[in-house]
Design a protein around this nucleic acid. Sequence first.
DNA 1: AAGAATCGCAACCGCCCTTTT
DNA 2: TAAAAGGGCGGTTGCGATTCT
Length: 296
Amino acid sequence: MRKPEPSSAGKDNLSNNKLRKGLWSPEEDDKLVNYMLNNGQGCWSDVARNAGLQRCGKSCRLRWINYLRPDLKRGAFSPQEEALIIHLHSLLGNRWSQIAARLPGRTDNEIKNFWNSTIKKRIKNLSSTHSPNASDHSSSPKDHVMGGLISMHEQGCIMPMMYMDSSLSSSSMQNMTLNHMVDQSHLLEHDLSTYASGYFNAPEYIAQMGPDGDHDLFVPPLESVYMEEKVKTAGNISMRTMNNNTLHNNINRKENLARAGNCGEVEDHQLRIGEWDLEELMKDVPSFPLLDFQVQ
DNA sequence: AAGAATCGCAACCGCCCTTTT
DNA sequence: TAAAAGGGCGGTTGCGATTCT
């Protein structure tokens, strides 16, 4: 966090054109909230000006989106949200806004911070604690995620269990494997998938979701037939040499094309591997049933 | 009890893309 | 068509709080 500028926090010092930086004062928050509730979102530089804030438009936008929006869900991430973030990250990479769009009440910044502070740390600990040479395989009872993961390892299960659901077609399996192949070089990413899969098999999760498991709902076959087509037409392109950045850059390219209105003009046969349609990729995701829960 | 180390997260930075002029 | 402005996004910083030694 940054200290508030020592100047006129909350005062209408319009003679001073220097924009404030740093923490927002309660008075500034009030001004922004009142303005947004009364006038709605417009041009952000206008919002800053009309609300009487000595802030740049970007700063107002960030403050509103990340902190002041009334529909924000505050508090710690639930295990369900955590698992969903991990799952979505395995598909989307560091595209936090896309991930946030599928977690109502959460912001990209929040998810990004959560990822960088909490999840990465856990995975790091996981890697060091449960490396092949590690002799101590005992699990901490307070960490159900770890518990699930460890029992999976003990069963010698390499493919993440979340991908082993019998409802999945072989093509889906193939695509899911592909999903991991694109980033084989990154142990961290692999661990994350495994980590998430451990969660789905944890006793606590099963107890919550029921023995029949809404697993199928919770972990939908994200990689669609559309993706399978892409895989088939990928031809000689080596997925092993394709890193995550390439994949995400290509998704970005496709997204930008779509935004520019060219989506329909891109013929399938012209698409190369990686130029997958993001919305197609994600079309099964938004209906996650567990998104209705509220954080305690 | 106090200093050091670590964590969590709000906010800024800089780049890129889109829209407007 | 080019330049400028606006907006969005991911990466990074920095500071208060918390934990550790």
